[in-house]
Structures are given as structure tokens and as C-alpha cells.
Nucleic acid binder design. Structure first.
Lengths: 204, 204
DNA sequence: GCTGTAACTTACACAACTGTAGCATCGGAA
DNA sequence: TTCCGATGCTACAGTTGTGTAAGTTACAGC
């Protein structure tokens, strides 16, 4: 057992839903601390302080476990995004609307780093299920962004390639989000927002 | 043996340097096709059509193998970059200099996708050695970029946060490079360069 | 043609993880 | 109080990968 394994001292008996949540928490923690490729039925069971058959009972196999995790975390992430993004664009000052959306995004990431790490830094160890879900979510955001971006920098200054513009903007936001995840001290949200404001001012 | 394993029909005897190169090639192919986390002494040996002790003889263990791979590929990548980036900035038109550097980068990535995939999409399965090397290389590029970017968009329009600007530019270039890797048909180099030119024109 | 060395193989011991079968026990409801 | 179903455990068999020791084979140089 490695030093990072934590284990409740006594195997407390739980109801099925409780145990399920606890196991998903344990799985998420392992993914956050050591990466997806370190998730195993064995590691999850040890971390939760129970034995493997319990995990098999709840999720069938590793794929089932990962799928359940992706479901739960995906729902959380999408929920946060939905509360932030919709219809922030049309109202009032264009630049400030964009910045507000960006700030909302970065603050969501900052508030739930573990959840968002799964989305923003899934990498190769991740299950196929996660990749697909992320791809779907990203496509939705992109199509929305493409519409929002279509006015470009004003009349006569529309982007000649709106699709790529949307993609670029999305990548930019994700890059900032990754900075929030990896170096929050160096790059607090306000610093990133301020810099983006300057960037937009240069073009506006 | 999985369907993707290829194996030379007869175990041809090779000189040590030849075998070494062949094993590194096999390792690189596995990383490219299935990801770093799928690399194992066993898989490499099978792919090369020989037995495991041969691999152990050359590289000691998995870490040694990965280190050797990172050495070889890293050297290739750095070599390509060095031939492209240095002192492209000061000469002539600012925007065109930047675009030339970007085009060089994207074409290098396009020409050696497997090598660059290791650098641009290393993700979590990757060995610590790779991460460190990438971090070092990136820091070098960043410091160079920070200097090059310091004039910003001209007198009186310097970036208030040059470090973050450099970082942003670097992330932008890497994002485009990833597009070249993942969707080369949709995003040919010229399309990306053209869009960047438009972006810079908006600000310039 | 011999021979010695480098290249390669077979074979074994070991470790981590998967998945399942059967048994033990807790705790709420009759 | 008793019972029974849900909860959890022990134990076992199988798989895949690691790492090494000892033996075999090809072939370059004499």
C-alpha cells in the first residue's frame, strides 16, 4: 500500500447509495492525485477501506466505474457551464460581456478544480467514455461560440474564418483555465481577465 | 497478441546499435498508436519480433527505455526548432516575421507528427523524464518569446503583462500545432497562418 | 574449418491486478 | 427475540507484466 492511500480505520457499513458516492469520491481523488492511469478497482477499494468485491458489486468492472465517474463529474461541469455561459453575449458592452463569461468560466474552474481537471487535462489514460463526452460538450460550446463570434470585431471586420476563430477562442479560454489549475498562485483569475481585456482592447 | 502488434517474421540478428534503433522505433510507434501508457518492455519486444531479455540488455528497464526514447526524439524536435526560430524576429516586417516563424513551426510539426505528438500531447502516462525535458524546452522558448514580444503592438501599446503575453502566444501556437496533428485535413497550415495574419492585422 | 563472443532464447520466480464463489455478519422488521 | 436480506469478507484461479539465470546459436576473424 502506497503512502498516499488513505483508509477509513474501520469498515463502516453503508447504504448502497452512500457507498456508491464514497467510491466515486475515492476514484476521483485517485484520478486527481495520480492520474487516470492509476485508477484500478484495487486502488479504489483500498482507498475506501473496503475490499474489491464491494466495488465489483456496485459498478461491475473498471469501465463501469469510470463511466459512473464521468457521468457524475460531467453533469457537474455541464451544470456549472450552463449557469455561466447562456446569453451573456448579446447584452450591453461586447468586451465586458465576453470578459464576464470568461471570468465565470475561470471561477468555476477555480472552485471545482478536481472536476475540471478531468475535463481539461484528461489525457491518454482516460476512458473512451470521457473523451466522447468531452468532445460532445466541446462541440456544443464551439457552435455557440461560433455564433457569438460571428460579428467579429464589428462591421466590416468580421472574421474570414469564423469556425477557426471560435476554435481559437475556445482554446484560449481552456489554456487560461489550465493556468488556473496548474499555477493558481501565479495566475489568479483577475490577472488573466485583465490581460484578456488588454488583448481585446488592442483589437477593438 | 493484439491485432496491432506487428512482428518481423523471422528474428533477424542485428548489431547492437541497429537493434537499439529498431527498438526505439518500435517504442515510438506504440506510443504514437496506443499512447505512452501502453508502452511496456513486453509490447516493445513483441513488436520488434524478439524476446524481452534483449530489451533489458539494451535499456535496463522501462524507465531506461523511455529515457532513451525521449533523448532521441527530444533531440530531433529541438533540432528542428533551432533551425526555425532563432532571430527570425528582428528582421523586417514584424507581422510577417512572426508568421514565418509560426509557419516554420507548424510545418515542422506537420513533417514529423509522431515526434511532435510526444511533445504536444504527452499527457499523464508519460514518463517524468519527458515532462521535465518539455518543461525545460518550453521555458527556453518562453523566455525568448517574452523578449520578442516585449515591443507589443508598438510604442505606447506595450503589453502590461509581458510574461503572460508570451505564455499566451506560446499556448496559441501549440494549440494550432495540435490542430495540425489531430485534424490536418480540416486545418492545413496555410489556413492557420492566414487566420493568424487576420488576427494580427486586427490588432496591428 | 574452428572458435570465441555477442546476440538471442527458454525457463523460472515474483508481483499486481482482475473477476468470482462461497461464507460471515450486521441490523431492521415481523 | 428471531430471522433474513443486504453488506461485506476470505479465498482462489487466471492474466499480464517484470526481471534474471542459464543455456543455445549465429557469425566474424583467425
Amino acid at each position: 500500500m502506497s503512502a498516499t492511500d488513505q483508509k477509513t480505520s474501520k469498515a463502516t457499513r453503508m447504504s448502497a447509495p452512500e457507498r456508491r458516492e464514497q467510491l466515486l469520491d475515492a476514484t476521483r481523488e485517485i484520478a486527481a492525485e495520480r492520474g487516470f492511469h492509476e485508477i484500478s478497482i484495487d486502488a479504489v477499494a483500498k482507498r475506501a477501506g473496503i475490499t474489491r468485491p464491494v466495488v465489483y458489486g456496485h459498478f461491475g468492472d473498471l469501465e463501469g466505474l469510470l463511466e459512473a465517474l464521468v457521468d457524475r463529474e460531467g453533469e457537474r461541469a455541464v451544470g456549472q457551464l450552463a449557469a455561466i455561459l447562456p446569453d451573456n453575449f448579446p447584452s450591453g458592452d461586447r468586451v465586458e460581456s465576453l470578459l464576464t463569461a470568461l471570468r465565470g468560466y475561470l471561477e468555476a474552474v477555480s472552485a471545482e478544480p478536481v472536476t475540471w481537471r478531468l475535463v481539461l487535462m484528461p489525457s491518454e489514460g482516460a476512458p473512451e467514455v470521457l473523451r466522447q463526452r468531452i468532445a460532445t460538450g466541446r462541440a456544443a460550446v464551439l457552435s455557440q461560440l461560433a455564433v457569438a463570434m460571428s460579428p467579429g470585431f464589428g462591421p466590416g471586420r468580421e472574421s474570414p474564418d469564423p469556425e477557426l476563430t471560435a476554435r481559437t477562442v475556445s482554446e484560449y479560454a481552456d489554456a487560461l483555465a489550465r493556468l488556473v489549475l496548474t499555477e493558481p498562485k501565479t495566475y489568479p483569475v483577475e490577472r488573466l481577465v485583465d490581460h484578456t481585456r488588454w488583448l481585446l482592447d488592442q483589437a477593438g
